[in-house]
Simulated assay, not measured.
Amino acid sequence: MVQPSLPAEVPDVTPDSLSDEVYLLDVREHDEWDAGHAPHAHHIPMREIPARLAEVPTVGEVIVVCRVGGRSAQVAAYLAAQGWENVANLDGGMLAWEASGRPVVADTGLPARVL
Rank of each mutant, 00 (worst) to 15 (best):
I63T: 08
A54G: 13
E9M: 15
V27N: 09
M46R: 10
D91P: 07
S5L: 15
E48V: 13
Y23K: 03
Y78G: 12
G70R: 12
G92L: 03
P4Y: 09
E61A: 12
L18E: 03
D16E: 10
Q82N: 12
V104D: 03
I49G: 12
P103V: 00
V68T: 15
T108Q: 08
D34P: 13
R52F: 07
D12N: 15
V114Q: 08
S72A: 04
D34M: 15
P11R: 13
A8Q: 04
A76M: 04
A35D: 10
G69I: 00
S17H: 10
A80Q: 01
V104C: 01
H37I: 04
V75K: 03
M94D: 02
D107W: 11
D91S: 15
R52L: 09
I49W: 06
E55D: 12
A73I: 10
E55R: 09
S17D: 12
H42F: 13
P50C: 01
V75F: 01
G93Y: 02
T58M: 13
E48I: 14
A76I: 02
I49H: 08
E85G: 11
E32K: 10
D20H: 10
R113F: 13
A35T: 10
R113E: 14
I63V: 15
A81M: 07
A38L: 01
Y23L: 05
L110T: 14
R113T: 11
V13I: 09
A88R: 08
A51W: 08
P39L: 05
A38K: 02
L110Y: 14
P45V: 09
V56T: 05
L79S: 05
A35L: 11
E21L: 12
A106R: 07
S17Y: 11
E61K: 13
A80I: 01
L90I: 04
A77I: 05
G69V: 00
D91Q: 14
